[in-house]
Amino acid sequence: MKAFILALLVAVGLPAIAFAQGSAAPQPGQPGPRPGTIVVQPGQPLPPNVRRLQPGDTPLAVPAKGGAQAPELLQPAKPEKFPHGDRVESKLDSKGIPASKPLALLFWAFAAATIGGALFVVTRRNLIAAVMGMVGSFLGISAIYMMLYAHFLSVVQMLVYAGAIMVLFVFVVMILNRPEDEPVAPTGRIGGVIGGLAIAYLVGRLVMILIKVRPPTGEAANLAPGPTSLGHDWGSVKAVGTDLFGPGLFPFEAISILLLVGVGGAIAIARPLHEDEPASTSGADNV
């Protein structure tokens, strides 16, 4: 029951992240014009490929209050529009990934849903509760993907994992329908010590590697990712598809073969054996 509530909370929270991305207020005190804006002093001629801000445009930076002495704000002319509307307009803060406070709070909420669901999976004795915790964990993960600008992967995660794989798990749980006697294997003292040391070693190595991660510094590294070289929005279906059917074409084809073999193997393994069949069909040869 708690897992249901958890999954419901995450499902309600997913539209909230889109809302928060749309309504995150821009930083008020930005010192200069943002990258992408070209500043031209009043007497200077215009560089090519640049047009003045039109009245309908959203200004990239607020002009200073100096009056006539203020430098003009110009915008590089965009070579092409996005004809199919696959560009996602995000008004994120320019300081970090989701540097605004509501987005940070949403990150913690979704991280809590992810970790809580995962703990639910590992600790519950009831299998259905474990599966429901898994669904909540996957919804949290897909929201985290959306924070990483992986819109397409987020939707795929929700469709494939929460929609397909978890349904498969529920089917198998319903077929099995046996409560566990003892969920956790009993270990002796020596085994526990060895296992604890091994886990401590693995965790220590992982932490050492994570500490060494040097994220790229500088203002440009933290900006929202711009469109790809073909003009598609970063992380959108078109951008991922262009990469998937270009450099990733061979893995894509290999995956199709793997899925075919997997389907055949699943049917072959899970098919009832000959001894399980009712006796009336085996006697058909004698007729």
Binding site: A150, F152, L153, V156, Q157, V160, Y161, A164, I165, L168, F169, V172, T228, W234, G235, A239, V240, D243, L244, P247, G248, P251, F252, I255, L258, L259, V261, G262, V263, G265, A266, I267, I269, A270
Partner: peptide, 23 residues
């Protein structure tokens, strides 16, 4: 962006693994 392609392939492999494992 190529990591997105890789993640998509990992998801497909996970689906195949779940199907065979559950079988």
């Amino acid at each position: 962006l190529s990591a997105h392609t890789f993640a998509l392939i990992v998801i497909a492999v996970a689906a195949a693994e779940a199907a065979v494992g559950l079988a």
